[in-house]
Amino acid sequence: ETGKELVLALYDYQEKSPREVTMKKGDILTLLNSTNKDWWKVEVNDRQGFVPAAYVKKL
């Protein structure tokens, strides 16, 4: 879809709370919100949640 910003997972991340999502290094995720410098909201496999901003980079 146009207008979607994507990020690349630089590291594996295992969710530690229900508000977070698990990702694997190399995953491409849809970026939903990056206003917080530490935690970015992403969508992966129809799930939305937060990942550490340092673990992903914008494509």
Rank of each mutant, 00 (worst) to 15 (best):
K37A: 13
Q48G: 06
L6Q: 12
E20W: 04
K4G: 10
R19S: 13
D46P: 05
V51P: 00
G49Q: 02
N45K: 12
Y13S: 01
V44M: 15
S17M: 08
K41T: 08
S34R: 07
Y13Q: 00
T30V: 15
K16W: 04
P18W: 10
N36S: 09
N45W: 09
T35C: 12
T22F: 04
T22C: 06
K16G: 08
K4W: 10
D38V: 14
I28Y: 06
K41D: 03
T22Y: 04
R47N: 06
A54Q: 10
V21Q: 03
K24S: 08
Y55V: 05
L29K: 00
D27G: 04
M23E: 00
M23W: 02
E1N: 15
K41A: 08
V56Q: 00
V56L: 15
V21Y: 04
N33E: 13
Y11N: 09
A9C: 12
K37P: 13
G3K: 15
E15I: 06
A9K: 01
D12H: 06
L32E: 02
L59P: 03
L32Y: 04
Y11P: 01
Y11C: 14
K41I: 14
Y11M: 11
L32D: 01
I28S: 03
T30N: 09
M23H: 01
N45M: 12
G3P: 14
E20K: 04
L59Y: 09
N33T: 08
A9D: 00
P52D: 02
V44D: 11
K57S: 11
E1K: 03
I28K: 06
M23K: 00
Q14R: 09
N45F: 10
F50K: 02
K41P: 01
L29C: 10
D38Q: 11
V42I: 08
R19Y: 14
L32R: 04
W39C: 06
A53V: 06
L6Y: 15
N36K: 08
V44F: 15
E15G: 15
K57D: 07
K24A: 09
V42S: 00
Y55N: 05
G49T: 02
Q14G: 07
E20A: 05
W40H: 02
R47F: 06
R47W: 04
W40Q: 01
K4V: 14
V7C: 12
S34M: 08
V56C: 13
L32P: 00
K41Y: 15
L29F: 06
V56A: 03
K41F: 15
I28N: 03
W40Y: 08
V42Q: 00
N36I: 06
L6V: 08
L59F: 09
K24Y: 12
R47M: 07
A9P: 01
A53S: 14
E20S: 06
N36F: 08
S17A: 08
K4P: 12
S34A: 11
L59R: 03
D46S: 11
Y11V: 11
P52L: 04
T22I: 03
S34Y: 07
L31S: 01
E20D: 05
G49P: 00
N36M: 09
K4M: 12
T2S: 12
K57A: 13
Y11W: 09
E5W: 13
L59M: 11
G26N: 07
E43A: 11
F50T: 03
E15M: 12
K16C: 10
E1A: 13
T35W: 09
K57H: 10
P52N: 02
T35D: 15
M23T: 03
E43C: 11
W40N: 01
E5F: 10
A54D: 09
P18T: 10
T2Q: 14
Y55L: 12
E1W: 05
L6I: 08
A9V: 11
W40F: 07
Y55P: 01
K16Q: 14
V51W: 00
G49E: 02
A54C: 12
L31N: 00
N45A: 11
R19T: 12
K37Q: 12
S34V: 07
L6F: 15
F50D: 04
L31Q: 01
A54Y: 09
V7Q: 01
R19V: 10
T22R: 05
K25D: 02
G49V: 05
T30P: 15
D46C: 12
T22E: 04
W39G: 00
F50A: 02
